[in-house]
Amino acid sequence: MPFWAQVAAVVAREWRAELGRPDMVVSFLVYGLLLVLVFTLAVNPLAVDVRPSAAGLLWIGFFFAALAGFQRSFAREREGDAMLGLRAAPLDAAALYYGKLLFGSALLGATELVVAPAFLNLANVRPVSSAGLAGALALGSAGLAAVAALVAAVAASLRSGEALLPLLGLPLLAPLALGAVRLTDAALTGALVPAALWLRVLVAYDMIFLVLPLVVFPYIAEE
C-alpha cells in the first residue's frame, strides 16, 4: 500500500474511533471553550481593554486544547493494547503519525472556528483583517498540531504521561507562541509587527516539526 493510502487508512480509523466514542472532539472543544470562559472571567473585558492581550490568550487556549486533544488520540491506543495490533499491521510507523496528525489538525481547526469567534465576541474584539487572522491561525496551528502530536505520542508511553505533557510541550512550543501571537495580534488589532520575520519563524518551525517525526516517530512507536 502506498504511503498516502496508509495515511488515509489511519485517518479513516481515527474517524471510526471518534464516532464510537468522541474522546478527541470533547477534549478539544471542551478545553477550548472552558479556557475562553475562564479567560473572560479572569480579565473581565467589560472593565479592561483586552485587545492587546487577546491574541496571547487565544493561543494559550489553543495550546492546551491541542495538547489535551492529541493526548486522547494516543492514550486510547494504550487502552486495549491497540498499539500491538498497529505494529503487527503492514503499516509504516510514520503513516500512523501523519494520519493522526491530519485527523487531529482537522479537529483543531474546527475547534478554532468555534472558539475564536466565541472568545472575540466575549472579549469585544473585532479583527482588523479576517484573512490575516485565518492565515496566522492556519500557520500556527500546523506547527502546534505537529508538536502536540509528537509530544503526546511520547507522553502516551509514560507512567505519568498526562502530567508531563504540558511540561514537555510548552517549552518546545515557545518559538511558535512568539511568532503566532505576534501575527495574530497584527490581524486582530492592526498592531505593527515585522510580519515577514514572524512568517519566516512560523514557516521554519512548521517545516522542522512536520519533518522531524518522519525520522523519530518510528522509534517512539516501536516500543
Partner: peptide, 11 residues
Amino acid sequence: GTLAAVVGIAG
C-alpha cells in the same frame, strides 16, 4: 533511552 533521545533531539 528512546523517548529521551526524541526529546533531546526536538529540544
